[in-house]
């Protein structure tokens, strides 16, 4: 088994020790950093499938996110700044009035480990801040996170603000969190919705795929 495959397997098994040992060896032997990113991507794909099948739960997503955070921080240390040309840029934040972060943080970690550049605006983010971040970072995708039902209104206000700023056709908007569904997505005016990280990643990957084909 190659070290890349070993890393993928260790991520799937959520074997923290194995992840640490493998990544240390890979970094020491100057393995291509893209290999590490690909191993993360492959591992997360399988974890997503296990989640959808009901074999893995949110407890596994939290653990996987912890492993990815560790891997990313090692990569960043190794390659200083831009360790890979990103697949795309995603601006993400929990909307105004909601301060929940666990779900959003998992998505951030998974996107980064999949090779996206992520601009994380944090929690309780106003529509104006989202608009400002879109102007500054020119993302392909904007992710609005929310856990409480009170987040529905602010999600709609954020999409409205993006429209009012004339930026709506420049970005794809995905809403995410335990509460969201098709009805809320259309009420808010989003393009897609996801109530788990695996679906969210698939939607974003599909957009990134379209974009790369276009280019």
């Amino acid at each position: 088994m190659s070290s890349k495959e070993r890393l993928t397997q260790a991520i799937i098994n959520l074997d923290e020790q194995m992840v640490t040992d493998t990544i240390n060896k890979m970094i020491a032997s100057n393995v291509e950093l893209t290999d590490i990113i690909e191993a993360c991507r492959d591992g997360m794909t399988v974890i997503g499938e296990l989640f959808e099948k009901g074999d893995y739960f949110l407890s596994e997503m939290v653990m996987a996110s912890e492993l990815l955070t560790d891997i990313i921080s090692r990569l960043k240390k190794k390659a200083e700044r831009s360790y890979i040309s990103p697949l795309g840029t995603v601006v993400i934040g929990t909307v105004k009035g909601d301060i929940h972060y666990i779900g959003k943080d998992i998505v951030v970690n998974v996107l980064e480990a999949n090779g996206y550049q992520v601009i994380d605006l944090g929690v309780d983010v106003s529509p104006e801040k989202f608009v400002e971040a879109i102007i500054t970072n020119k993302p392909e995708v904007v992710g609005l996170s929310g856990l409480i039902t009170e987040a529905i209104g602010p999600m709609k206000k954020t999409v409205d603000a993006i429209k009012a700023a004339g930026l709506r056709d420049k970005v794809k908007i995905i809403i995410g969190g335990g509460i969201v569904n098709e009805v809320i997505s259309s009420y808010v005016g989003a393009d897609k919705w996801a109530n788990n990280v695996s679906t969210g990643l698939k939607e974003i990957n599909a957009w990134a795929g379209e974009k790369n084909v276009r280019e």
């Binding site: 039902t149 529905i152 209104g153 509460i179 569904n181 009805v183 809320i184 009420y187």
Partner: peptide
């Protein structure tokens, strides 16, 4: 009753 239905429905 989903609380969200009270807003969107």
């Amino acid at each position: 009753i989903p609380a969200s239905l009270m807003v969107t429905g």
